[in-house]
Simulated scan of single mutants.
Amino acid sequence: MDYKIPEKMKALVLFGPNDVRLVEKPVPKPGPGEVLVRVAACGICGTDVKIITKGMPKMPPYGEFTFGHEWAGTVVAVGDTVDEFKVGDRVAIEAHKGCGRCENCIDGKYTACLNYGRLDKGHRAAGMTVDGGFAEYAVQHVNSVYKIPDNISFNEATYVTTAGCALYAIDKSGGYIAGDTVLVIGPGPIGLSVVQGARALGAEKIILMGTREDRLAKGRKLGATHTINIREVADPVAEVMALTDGKGAERVFECGGNSQAFEYGIKSTKKGGVMVLVSFYKEPVTANLDYVVMNQISLLTVRGEGNQNCKRALSLMAQGKIDAKPIMTHAFPLEEFHKGLDYFVNRKDGAMKVVINP
């Protein structure tokens, strides 16, 4: 199958803080080990909001940079040495491609690559340190590209990064999850993905805590056995304890990203249990760490969708054990990016994951 590839394409470019423009720029060419993809869908993520408003370390210069790291599409050309993919393949990407040569990458921790942002060393983070997917075409290294199963749409496939982050958090929490009680704080896209992942892996109780009843209700449909609206109860931690015979949850996933959520999390964790920090925190967190030490609670963190968890996410989606449809709430064409961003940031019309279709 041959695709006619134009010289120019439409792309969003960041010209400065809060200055995103739709422009024409050259279609990129795939280098060795890379594929050129005709982008069909690119999701808006909270990290994109941070990039738009404040920029990001190691990102390309203003006036050139196309962001977007949750994208999917069709391979239309391949670079030298590429035989893993062929023209016509439907693919989704994960954002992080480690350098492959530092100690962390050799250990498989490529989302914590020691050469982050070093293009000369081979590191790439799509839509962060190199151009991303809010464009008609984008290139990606084959190390971070996955074929999309036939029963998953392009829009759904953009969800693999979000689901991959959630599965990485579960992965990092260690060992079996079957039979455990899991607490998820924050019913946003990643929190709801943790709920689905925990259900797929056999958690006995899945408690979802948050402030928005519509999202808690969605969580119940996606697998939460219990929900706690912190605006409607006097003591959310006491509610967790009542559901766990006073022990707390073996695993807590903090997806809220604030001091209150952090405090609820540590106080709800079983002695000797694990709390995984999945969120980025906008401000420094104040918490009673004596409680953590005295109760031997392990605090772990994850960044991104490491350890090939996008591949696992695609598999669980294809099996019907993770459902992207309830979370992918809105879609807009590339020309209406600003409208889509407004819906995402201000949660208009119940917006959760918003997809842009170039």
Rank of each mutant, 00 (worst) to 15 (best):
D290Q: 10
I228N: 11
E213K: 13
A92C: 01
F253E: 07
G191I: 11
M328D: 09
C102H: 04
G73S: 10
V278G: 13
C165L: 10
S298W: 12
S144G: 04
I206P: 06
M241L: 15
K311Y: 08
R251E: 11
V39C: 01
A135C: 09
N155T: 11
M1N: 13
E283N: 14
I228S: 10
A169C: 01
C102G: 03
P189M: 04
V91R: 01
I266Y: 07
V76P: 03
T269I: 06
L201N: 06
G108W: 00
L314I: 02
R124W: 07
L167H: 04
K147Y: 08
V76R: 10
Q308K: 15
R124K: 14
P26D: 14
L114I: 00
P30T: 00
P189H: 01
L208T: 09
Q260H: 10
A163E: 01
V37G: 08
G108A: 06
M59I: 08
K267D: 09
A318S: 15
H338V: 10
W71I: 02
G223V: 01
D131E: 00
G219L: 06
L341T: 05
E34D: 13
H338N: 15
G188M: 09
G88Y: 02
G132P: 11
G133K: 10
N115M: 12
A178N: 11
M209F: 02
V145E: 10
T81H: 04
M209H: 08
C42A: 14
C42V: 01
C255I: 08
A178W: 12
C310V: 14
V39R: 02
K86H: 10
A157S: 13
F262T: 14
E254M: 09
